[in-house]
Amino acid sequence: MPVADVRLGSGDHALNVTSIGYGAMSIAGAYGSMAEDAAIDLLHHVEERGVNFIDTANIYGDGVSEQVVGKFLDGRRHDFVLATKVGIEKGGGVGQRRPRGDAAYIREQIDLSLKRLGTDYVDLYYLHRVDPEVPIEESAGALSELVEAGKVRAIGLSEATGEEIRRAHAVHPVTAVQSEWSIFSRDVETYVLPTCAELGVGFVPYSPVGRGLITDHFTPDALGEGDGRHNFPWFQAENLPLNQELAEQVLAEAAALDVPAAGLALAWLFAKAHGLGVEISPIPGTRYAEHWDELQAGLGAGGAGVELDAGVIARLDALAEQVRGERSFKVDWVSGGREGLIPRS
Rank of each mutant, 00 (worst) to 15 (best):
G336A: 09
G336F: 04
S65A: 15
D111K: 11
K330A: 14
V3Y: 02
K85R: 14
F270W: 13
F184N: 06
K272A: 03
R315E: 15
G224C: 08
T195E: 10
A24S: 05
E180Q: 08
D55F: 03
E294D: 15
G325A: 04
M34L: 15
V3F: 10
V171A: 04
Y121P: 03
A262V: 02
A176Q: 02
V122M: 07
I106L: 10
A301M: 03
R315N: 13
G325E: 02
A222W: 01
F184K: 01
V331D: 04
H44N: 13
A140Y: 05
V69A: 14
V81S: 00
H45W: 11
K151C: 07
T190C: 10
S19Y: 04
V152G: 00
R315H: 01
T215G: 00
G21V: 10
L42P: 03
W181F: 07
I342W: 05
N58I: 02
G337F: 05
G32L: 04
A254K: 02
L124H: 06
A176C: 12
H274R: 13
R166Y: 02
G224T: 14
D102A: 03
R229I: 05
A197S: 13
Y191K: 07
E163R: 13
T175Q: 10
G87V: 00
I136M: 12
R211L: 11
V51F: 12
I214H: 01
L157S: 11
V17M: 13
A247P: 01
L266P: 08
S144Q: 09
L299V: 09
I27H: 07
A314N: 09
K151W: 03
Y121H: 14
F53P: 02
K90S: 12
R338K: 13
K151Q: 02
L112P: 00
A4D: 13
G202H: 09
E180W: 11
A318D: 14
G101F: 04
V209P: 03
A247L: 03
A24R: 00
K115A: 13
V171P: 00
P194Q: 07
G305P: 13
G95N: 09
Q322W: 06
I27Y: 09
D111E: 15
W181D: 00
F184A: 09
D317A: 06
D332E: 15
V6Q: 01
A256M: 11
G340E: 08
F53A: 02
H172T: 14
I155E: 01
T190M: 13
Y31V: 06
V331K: 07
L246Q: 12
E180N: 10
A304H: 13
N239D: 09
E290S: 14
W234Q: 12
S19H: 00
A261S: 15
G118M: 04
E137T: 14
E248S: 15
Q109G: 08
A28Y: 04
G70H: 02
L114W: 06
G9H: 05
E159V: 06
F232A: 11
V331I: 15
L276I: 14
V17A: 04
T215C: 01
D123N: 07
R327P: 01
V94K: 10
I280K: 01
P194W: 07
V152W: 00
R287Y: 09
M34D: 00
Y105P: 01
V306E: 04
F232L: 13
P194S: 06
G101Y: 00
D79W: 09
V134N: 01
I40S: 09
A28V: 06
D221C: 05
L73A: 12
R229S: 12
G336I: 02
G277T: 01
S345D: 12
A255F: 12
R344S: 14
G302D: 14
